[in-house]
């Protein structure tokens, strides 16, 4: 089993740091395991407790990803940590990233039955990488997964997926697929261990994971492009069809209404505002 995690800036106050121009100062801001990746790691941990799965974790980016890998290891008691680090990987779009991660996951020992990823990242990633890795691996991709169970005899997985579509009520879809699969975990994912024995196992692994993660470096394997054996034309900037061409401010939309401006410190104005609100609500408007 593999978990793909992503390192993200820690957005909490006190940890975050800004450059004078207002942009994020990535060097000073602490990095952490992204919340979506954390949920993915938790979901993988479920398989470890329930089915005795062996877990490997994979992450891209520079040396700072170590923290994320350690946190991921604490969360899911991974046995192998993969880090893909090479200047050639830099600047990749989702297609280029997917190629690297595919190569890495294929390099993992043993057969991967389930690959987990987060839903998307909170600092701008788009949720495309997961399905693209899956396609390159030839695994069915199941997104928005809120719970899952594996049938070890039949070698199948059953998942529940939460689909939200514009103008439609949300749908929970139950899907069955043969292993191996790639699943992306929805933020609302939840699992529970319902028996004493599962809970004891879970507590045991968690404790051990925490201890083991102190020496996470023993399990860390770092790969560059050569070690991964990837085609240089398919990774990094060269393997990325898309580029960011420009960043600009979104211009103000055209005024569609003409607002009456009231002063919040004037009681008369407050009275008026409330009266207008009540009027709006009582109006006999048929919509």
């Amino acid at each position: 089993m593999a978990v793909v995690v992503k390192l993200e800036p820690d957005f909490s106050e006190g940890s975050i740091s800004y450059n004078p121009d207002g942009t994020l100062n990535r060097n000073e801001t602490k990095s952490t395991l992204g919340p979506h990746s954390r949920i993915a790691a938790q979901a993988a941990f479920y398989a470890k407790v329930k089915y005795g799965a062996r877990i490997s974790v994979a992450s891209m980016s520079g040396h700072v990803a170590n923290t994320a890998l350690q946190q991921a290891m604490q969360t899911c008691d991974a046995e192998v940590l993969h880090l893909y680090n090479d200047v050639l990987f830099a600047g990749a779009d989702t297609l280029g990233t997917a190629e690297t991660l595919k190569a890495g996951i294929s390099k993992m020992e043993g057969k991967m039955d389930i690959v987990f990823s987060g839903h998307r990242a909170s600092d701008g990633e788009t949720g495309q990488t997961g399905p693209q890795i899956a396609w390159k691996l030839g695994f069915p991709f199941l997104g928005h997964v809120i719970s899952y169970d594996v049938n070890l005899e039949k070698r199948t997985i059953t998942v529940k997926r939460l689909l939200s579509l514009q103008g439609m009520p949300d749908v929970i879809e139950e899907v069955e697929a043969p292993l191996p699969v790639f699943i992306a975990i929805d933020p609302s994912y939840k699992h529970s261990f319902d028996t004493v024995s599962e809970r004891l196992t879970s507590e045991k692994y968690q404790r051990e994971a925490y201890e083991r993660a102190k020496n996470y470096k023993d399990r860390l394997q770092v790969f560059n492009s050569e070690k991964l054996g990837v085609n240089r034309g398919l990774i990094g900037l060269a393997g990325s069809p898309t580029i960011v061409y420009d960043v600009q401010r979104v211009p103000k939309g055209k005024a569609t209404r003409h607002a009456e401006v009231l002063d919040g410190s004037n009681p008369e104005h407050i009275r008026k505002a409330v009266a207008r609100m009540r009027e709006a609500l009582s109006a006999m408007v048929t919509k």
Binding site: K252, G253, A255, R257, A259, E260, L262, A273, R276
Partner: peptide, 16 residues
């Protein structure tokens, strides 16, 4: 920009 999208604009902080 919200000022151009509303009928009444009350200037002030929400907590006040």
């Amino acid at each position: 920009p919200i000022k151009d999208q509303c009928d009444i604009f009350i200037k002030g902080r929400m907590e006040d």
